[in-house]
C-alpha cells in the first residue's frame, strides 16, 4: 500500500470539495476545486486509489505545496 500526497499548486482557498473520505477515485477524477485570483483550479486525482484523508475544509485557505488530501493506492 502506497500513500500519495496531493498538493496545492497555488496560494488560494478551497472553493468546493467534490469527494469524500473513503471514495474510490480514478486517475483524473475531480477531488476538489481551489480558487485563486478569480481562477478556478481543479484538483484531480494523480493516481487511482482510495481517498483516505482530506486535510482541508471548504473556504479554508491553502498555501503553495500544502497537502490537500491523501490517496491510498
Amino acid at each position: 500500500m502506497v500513500i500519495r500526497e496531493v498538493t496545492s499548486e497555488v496560494i488560494g482557498s478551497v472553493w468546493k470539495i467534490e469527494r469524500s473520505v473513503g471514495d474510490a477515485v480514478e486517475e483524473g477524477d475531480l477531488i476538489m476545486i481551489l480558487e485563486s485570483m478569480k481562477m478556478e483550479i481543479p484538483v484531480e486525482a494523480p493516481v487511482a486509489g482510495t481517498l483516505s484523508e482530506i486535510k482541508v475544509v471548504a473556504e479554508g485557505s491553502v498555501e503553495e505545496d500544502q497537502v490537500l488530501c491523501l490517496i491510498e493506492t
Partner: peptide, 9 residues
C-alpha cells in the same frame, strides 16, 4: 510556464 497559474505574493 505553468499554465498561467496565478502567483500571489
Amino acid at each position: 510556464e505553468k499554465g498561467f497559474l496565478p502567483s500571489p505574493g
